[in-house]
Design a protein around this nucleic acid. Sequence first.
DNA 1: ATTTAATGGTGTAATTTCGACACCTTATAT
DNA 2: ATATAAGGTGTCGAAATTACACCATTAAAT
Lengths: 231, 231
Amino acid sequence: MEVKLPTFDSVFSIDCVIFGFEAGELKILLIERNEEPFKDWLALPGYIVEQDESIDDAAERILYELTGLRDLHMQQFHTFGEVKRHPQGRVITVAYYALIRINGQKEVKPVTQYAKSAFWHPVNDLPKLAFDHSEIFNTGFNKIRRRLNYQPIAFELLPEKFTLTQLQSLYEAVLNKKLDKRNFRKKMLSYGFLKELDEKQKGVSYRAAKLYKFDRRKYAKIFQNELNLVQ
Amino acid sequence: MEVKLPTFDSVFSIDCVIFGFEAGELKILLIERNEEPFKDWLALPGYIVEQDESIDDAAERILYELTGLRDLHMQQFHTFGEVKRHPQGRVITVAYYALIRINGQKEVKPVTQYAKSAFWHPVNDLPKLAFDHSEIFNTGFNKIRRRLNYQPIAFELLPEKFTLTQLQSLYEAVLNKKLDKRNFRKKMLSYGFLKELDEKQKGVSYRAAKLYKFDRRKYAKIFQNELNLVQ
DNA sequence: ATTTAATGGTGTAATTTCGACACCTTATAT
DNA sequence: ATATAAGGTGTCGAAATTACACCATTAAAT
């Protein structure tokens, strides 16, 4: 049985591609839709912008309502405006991304009923998503893959204290290629924005690695703008 | 006397930052507005997206109507969605840029009455623009400045046949720094996508320079993606 | 015919960066 | 004590980058 739904005119919406890194894998946040169209499908967290909020504010609000996550540093990356991208009417959507630390984050959980659930899903094995969300994801993934090379975004995905091996495996996951351990360490340390801590990794059944911290102040001092972080 | 104007609800618009290069200077296309608000102000070419056209199509149409230019390769670069950015209501605008050859282009001239005139203006000396168009311009300028380093966009701004000095002065104008002549030539030629022609510059009162052409095919063969074009 | 003015066009050497490559060390579990 | 698993480290050749200065060519002016 098909449900007949009202159509509407011009609407702005926001869709979010939220990246996280866990167990050596890059993941994104998906929701299970609880509304037509595409009820029960998996989708990117997204919803409609209100009249009296900026799109940046809307992005924060919508992500919170659908996942319970707050205060992420979201960044707009592309606007999708094909006429038929939404079956019910003209919806132009501004896509945002954010990078977050999965560990230490409480469980993600929708606050509204528009979504049944929210969860992390590896980027390597994504199902078909609602609307044009697969395309939105691909565009966003390409953006951060490139940005990884000239902006220090990796550190937003790692815990505050991390090992060089973790950092390297994050680069390898995003760029999808193996990097040389010695060259990677040499280069990363040469920038001078990694602060070596007096602490070591805990709870591993092998030699514990030194922990490092990203020193945002030093980074800002060294580079006004940006740099080539890898090869 | 103040004119009272109707307000409206959610509206999408497009604004265009069209770059050109002439007489060693980088320029953009401005229009003189013929409508409230900001009647008589200078502004970026821009207007409202129709219900039944994609934003990419709208960008092409609007640019044509306001400047008479057609078939440019326009690219979206950012969406501006502050609540108060338009005095009459909620207008979210998607900004596009394009790079074009000014020479050989017929004079730019609006086709509709929304604009009184359209003309090229050097980027170094821009007046205050209507709405948030100064901010839109700055964002766009930063984008192409970065893109110049890894994509062959310079050739869209130059005539089809150009000298190495012209190419260099374009890079200098966009990056706003002096480059070394010998190193610049060495590097550009080393890529292998510049085709040396059997022709020379004409009409100059000094030694004529060799002309070159950008070989798009070779470029595509050599680089699947992109590269660092300068230092 | 000669000179002047303006830009065209070219090479080398020192330095830095990149990339390939392998082994010993340390901590834990058994 | 031994096995296991990852941590951590240096060198050398190749390639890329940077700094740097002078002669050549053309047209215009004299």
